[in-house]
């Protein structure tokens, strides 16, 4: 039996962003793409959602201070 790690309470929601989403959500940021935090291509979550190196992941997690916080990671190639 294989357990889907995304169902685990400690794993926040990871989604692969589409091109449109990227251009929409990153239209007015003051940093470059390559400066985003990285995530390993062999990270269990990356493998579970089938992300490829170069993909940008949107991570939605609960935050103590902000309630819900959205952050991004780029898959390391």
């Amino acid at each position: 039996m294989k357990i889907d790690i995304q169902d685990h309470m400690l794993v926040p929601k990871h989604e692969i962003m589409t091109e449109e989403e990227i251009s929409e959500e990153f239209s007015d940021v003051d940093y470059e793409f390559k400066d985003l935090p990285k995530i390993r291509a062999n990270d269990p979550v990356v493998e579970a959602i089938g992300a490829e190196p170069g993909n940008v992941l949107r991570i939605t997690r609960e935050s103590q201070t902000a309630g819900v916080f959205v952050t991004y990671r780029i898959v390391e190639g």
Partner: peptide
Amino acid sequence: VKSSGLVTDNQGNVIQTMFGEDGV
């Protein structure tokens, strides 16, 4: 911390997109 709330290190790597996640 940049004025937009972005936290970076001295190499320009993003640490947080909004400081303390709530910007407070």
